[in-house]
Simulated scan of single mutants.
Amino acid sequence: MNRMSISKQRTIIIVSFTLIPLLLLLTFAYYPALQLIHLSFTNWDGMSQEKEWVGWDNYAEVFNNPDIFGVFRHNLAYFFVGIVQNLFAIYFAVILKGKLRGRNLFRLLLFLPYILNGVAVAYLFGYVFDTTNGSLNTVLGGIGLPNDTSWLGMKSLVNYTLASIGFWRFMGFNMVIYLAALQSIPEDLYEASSIDGANGWQKFRFITLPNIYKIIELNLFLTVTGALEVFDLPFVLTTGGPAGASETFVMKIISTAFQFNNYGLASAMSVVLLLAVVAVLSVQRYFLNRGND
């Protein structure tokens, strides 16, 4: 009986620890997702009881309207800068793994921007990139370079300017992840390679990179999703300007839903964004795994 009682208790505990997270997942993730897909096939203003069924019309509008689907090109700047950010993160992780005096201080300084609030960071860089009184133009003028650049007012610069803020904010976070991966590599491998006459580049190429390959894949996953879903920086600093040049796809979704009360179209745009993330990550995973093989 005691054995049966213990067995039953164990079963109850296992079932409870399984069912509760599953119920939470179904309630706050899968059910809203199914509702989102359902709304994407309707014409709903967010208030009326009736939801007119329009079929695939919302999706046709997303793909055929360049003012909607074309906004994706604004996210490319965040993707390219994110790739460069990962390269710098690996570089600093390799340097700060070594026996460098004050390395803990440098690690802290690089990681600090990540813990700052996104809105606070946006307001901070609003002063940095200000055309007339900004610190960046002041420094450029002090060294004899043009100091009247409108960093947030030029269509050709605004997205890369905003992406550079993300570079500053998230590079330290990626660096810490790479640093943790580097510290898990046995030192015996490096010592053995030194005995065999390997130089620094050969150690990095044949020992470091293969051992942090999965971490690189993880950080690229975060980079891609972050580039496609960026919202806070352009919303606070430019509100999508100038003339919509910095409007991201997420900003377009929010304005479609809450400004124009077209929740059906906004839902379809959200589904398209989800599919875009899945597609890009699938392609990324395919090429990374093929290169690893």
Rank of each mutant, 00 (worst) to 15 (best):
245 A>R: 03
18 T>S: 15
25 L>T: 12
129 F>A: 04
52 E>F: 00
229 E>Q: 11
276 A>E: 00
50 E>R: 05
6 I>V: 15
150 S>I: 00
191 E>K: 02
70 G>D: 06
250 V>N: 04
266 A>N: 01
82 G>K: 10
160 Y>F: 12
164 S>R: 07
41 F>C: 08
245 A>T: 11
274 L>I: 09
92 F>A: 13
36 L>C: 07
83 I>W: 07
267 S>T: 05
192 A>V: 14
102 G>N: 14
273 L>Q: 14
39 L>P: 00
53 W>M: 12
164 S>F: 12
44 W>G: 03
288 L>W: 03
31 Y>D: 02
272 V>I: 10
134 G>T: 04
206 F>P: 02
105 L>T: 15
285 R>G: 11
157 L>N: 03
286 Y>M: 11
77 A>M: 15
210 P>N: 09
251 M>E: 00
168 W>T: 09
31 Y>V: 12
282 S>P: 00
67 D>N: 13
197 G>I: 04
173 F>P: 01
72 F>E: 03
29 A>V: 15
230 V>T: 10
90 I>W: 04
53 W>V: 14
49 Q>T: 10
219 N>K: 06
159 N>A: 05
126 G>E: 08
54 V>W: 00
270 S>K: 07
113 P>V: 08
62 V>K: 02
7 S>P: 01
207 I>L: 07
9 Q>S: 15
217 E>H: 01
153 G>Y: 00
238 T>V: 02
111 F>L: 12
146 P>S: 03
115 I>A: 13
242 P>M: 09
118 G>W: 01
130 D>W: 01
69 F>P: 04
212 I>M: 03
16 S>E: 10
220 L>E: 06
185 I>M: 02
92 F>Q: 03
190 Y>R: 12
274 L>E: 07
247 E>C: 06
87 L>C: 14
151 W>D: 01
12 I>Q: 12
99 K>H: 14
122 A>D: 10
59 Y>A: 02
67 D>A: 13
47 M>C: 00
199 N>A: 07
283 V>A: 14
155 K>W: 01
192 A>C: 04
49 Q>G: 07
281 L>P: 01
66 P>S: 09
26 L>P: 10
214 K>M: 09
248 T>N: 04
110 L>G: 12
74 H>I: 11
234 P>W: 01
143 I>V: 15
127 Y>T: 12
10 R>M: 13
219 N>D: 09
215 I>F: 02
245 A>D: 10
263 Y>N: 04
162 L>S: 00
37 I>W: 08
46 G>W: 06
87 L>V: 15
116 L>D: 06
41 F>Y: 12
155 K>A: 15
261 N>H: 11
245 A>V: 13
220 L>P: 08
247 E>T: 10
208 T>G: 02
91 Y>C: 08
140 L>E: 01
284 Q>D: 02
171 M>D: 03
146 P>C: 11
238 T>F: 08
290 R>K: 15
9 Q>P: 02
64 N>V: 06
240 G>A: 01
228 L>M: 06
68 I>L: 13
251 M>V: 08
17 F>L: 15
60 A>G: 07
271 V>W: 01
240 G>F: 03
201 W>Y: 14
81 V>A: 12
26 L>C: 14
241 G>V: 09
173 F>E: 02
56 W>I: 14
